[in-house]
Design a protein around this nucleic acid. Sequence first.
DNA 1: GTCGCTCATTGATCATGATCAAGGCAGAAC
DNA 2: GTTCTGCCTTGATCATGATCAATGAGCGAC
Lengths: 247, 247
Amino acid sequence: MLSTIPVQDTSIKHLRQACSNCSLRELCLPLGLSVEEMRHVDELVSQGRPVKRGDALYRAGEPFRALFAVKLGFFKTSVVSEDGREQVTGFHMTGDLIGLDAVSTDLHTCDAVALEDSQVCELPFVEMEELARKIPAIQHHLYKVMSREIVRDHGVMLLLGNMKAEERIAAFLLNLSQRFAQRGYSASSFHLRMTREEIGSYLGLKLETVSRTLSKFQEQGYIKVQNRLIEIIQIDALRQLVSNCQG
Amino acid sequence: MLSTIPVQDTSIKHLRQACSNCSLRELCLPLGLSVEEMRHVDELVSQGRPVKRGDALYRAGEPFRALFAVKLGFFKTSVVSEDGREQVTGFHMTGDLIGLDAVSTDLHTCDAVALEDSQVCELPFVEMEELARKIPAIQHHLYKVMSREIVRDHGVMLLLGNMKAEERIAAFLLNLSQRFAQRGYSASSFHLRMTREEIGSYLGLKLETVSRTLSKFQEQGYIKVQNRLIEIIQIDALRQLVSNCQG
DNA sequence: GTCGCTCATTGATCATGATCAAGGCAGAAC
DNA sequence: GTTCTGCCTTGATCATGATCAATGAGCGAC
């Protein structure tokens, strides 16, 4: 349901406003809502709430009330197995929506921890559903966002199931690069917010392997590594590694 | 929105009827719809459509029209990487809903192939969304089903990222066992519908490793294997393997 | 500045699972 | 029945990445 209001400028202005309210890249930008509809969303979405580096936005087992949109900053989400091993399930940056897993049981099933000082918008889910009933575009979009998460997870499964260490690291760097670029940051030079161990957990590797592989890429001139600062020199070399993944 | 109709018996009868129409375990059973509401679902859901063993229900890249509920039979879903390597992303049996990944792009992102002669119900998604707007319970349930898929995928990521071969196989057998039991089949004795290679693809292992591990479990008296027939002898031994997963 | 802590790097060795290879079994086609 | 084919099993060897261990760099607290 695209905007039926003729004054496009106003519509867009409102949309921009709400989205800069909260940087709802994933939730708002592609929606094409009318001014009226946008106002409803505006009302629902809370103003940014700060989360300090190292703090948990939520933890597994806590009751589910709201989805969160990352307004600013960087999060990891992770599940913990019975014996306490952590599996990082994702890294999330500005505009990403997190907490979708909790809808299934009304309990959060993973931890979300800020990897730098961050801000989030809260999206109370019950109210979101109500709004979704009134505004089909929102209903549909929520389905889309959840579906996209499923597709993303399948990609990770492919990575974990089929790729070698080098291919995983290359894919990881390319993915980060692309996401930074989409947000207007440099695609070739960025700061890792996570430790080697967290990267390893996400990619199914030990931290030593992550470190060694990054060093190797540097030796080969693919990238430059300085602690957490990454500079990609030969992006095509990385791309070839990934597309060459022959198991 | 639970049924507000007093005649519970009728309601349940209708529900049973629609669900046996299609074995919509995942979609219908937990809904608590009214007679009226159930009729709407009834009208929407197509009668069973057969899919022969080996045939694809859909393939990656095909346009998305409908979700599918497995009415009878057994499916695998898999994504294929650029170079042609297959990663099985799931095995699906009676009552499971598949195709959720396709909502994100309006294209199917994986293949769904029947591993035995099967039957599915088609759930046209556009109409489902319409119905969801009228019946909040359906809207909510669809969100739940998608969320559950995300949680399931996170579980697989944990398995692929942290577990050793033996732990993966044990977890796989326990999962199958549980799902058969939920459907009224034996939890301790069942027939694998998939090849060793497909199991391996799902679990991130080579077929030889799958075979060896099953043989090893048999030697240890945990299970009995006869080709694709599995009998679980010491379920607790398998459970302990999984919960002991120390990476 | 020093101390103390976390995180990262690098080396040496080891173990797990992949790979290569040969053979066997079961079911379908004839 | 026989043959053919696809799937499975088992053995031998190899390679990747895990593990163990030591050192070093960065950074905040004081």
